[in-house]
Simulated scan of single mutants.
Amino acid sequence: MSPFSINWQVAERALFLWNNDHIRNLIVQNREVILPLIFPLLEKNTRGHWNEAVQSLTLNVRKIFSDADQALFDECLEKFKEDEIKDKEAQERRELTWKRLEDVAASNFVSNEAVLVSRLASAVVIDSSTN
């Protein structure tokens, strides 16, 4: 059995636990702590998990939280969307920085000049001093 198939089975069994009334009641009672922690994972499962059973069970769990506390659910959804935007912006900055580094490295490849990069990678400096 491949690790990939084992992972979805673990996810499916973990999500299936939410059907137990005792566990559901404990989780709903502690939703202010639990939902913010697991919401990003639930949202990612809902949006793109390859296994239909895992997606379906995830939707059931989301509904439990939504029914228990719509305001908290909406708050977590809004934070998730904000975090997604921040992550996308950070990814774009990383790609731009790498592009700049590649351009500088390519332009200095022929001249054999060293390329210095600050710790923040906000600036790329060309060191034309000779040793």
Rank of each mutant, 00 (worst) to 15 (best):
S66A: 11
L42K: 01
A106L: 13
S129F: 05
A71V: 12
A53G: 03
D127W: 07
N131H: 07
S122T: 14
L77I: 03
N25V: 06
V115G: 07
E102S: 12
E78C: 07
R94C: 10
V28C: 01
N108V: 09
V117Q: 00
A123M: 15
Q91M: 11
V125C: 10
F65H: 00
K99Q: 15
I85R: 12
K81L: 14
V33C: 07
I6N: 06
L101T: 03
F80E: 03
N51K: 06
D67E: 14
N25C: 05
R24Y: 00
A114M: 13
A123D: 14
S5A: 06
A105S: 13
E43T: 07
D69A: 06
S128H: 14
D87P: 09
T46G: 04
E52S: 11
N25H: 04
V110D: 01
H22W: 02
R31K: 15
L37E: 12
R31Y: 07
I126W: 00
L15H: 00
L101C: 10
N108A: 08
D74F: 01
K79Y: 01
I85L: 13
T46C: 10
T58W: 00
L15N: 02
L15M: 05
V104E: 04
W18N: 04
N112K: 13
D21V: 10
V10C: 12
I38D: 03
T46Y: 06
S66N: 13
R94T: 13
Q9F: 08
A71R: 08
D83Y: 06
R31M: 14
I23F: 04
L101P: 04
A11H: 03
K86M: 10
R100T: 08
W50R: 06
S5Q: 04
F39P: 00
R119H: 11
A71Q: 13
F4I: 13
N60V: 09
Q70I: 14
H22D: 06
A68P: 01
R119K: 09
W18H: 04
W18C: 08
D69I: 06
R13G: 08
R93Y: 02
S2I: 06
L57I: 07
L116M: 11
Q55W: 01
D103C: 07
E92S: 12
L15V: 03
N19Q: 15
D67K: 08
L116E: 14
R47F: 10
S118Y: 04
L72I: 12
S5W: 01
S107F: 05
N19L: 07
K81I: 11
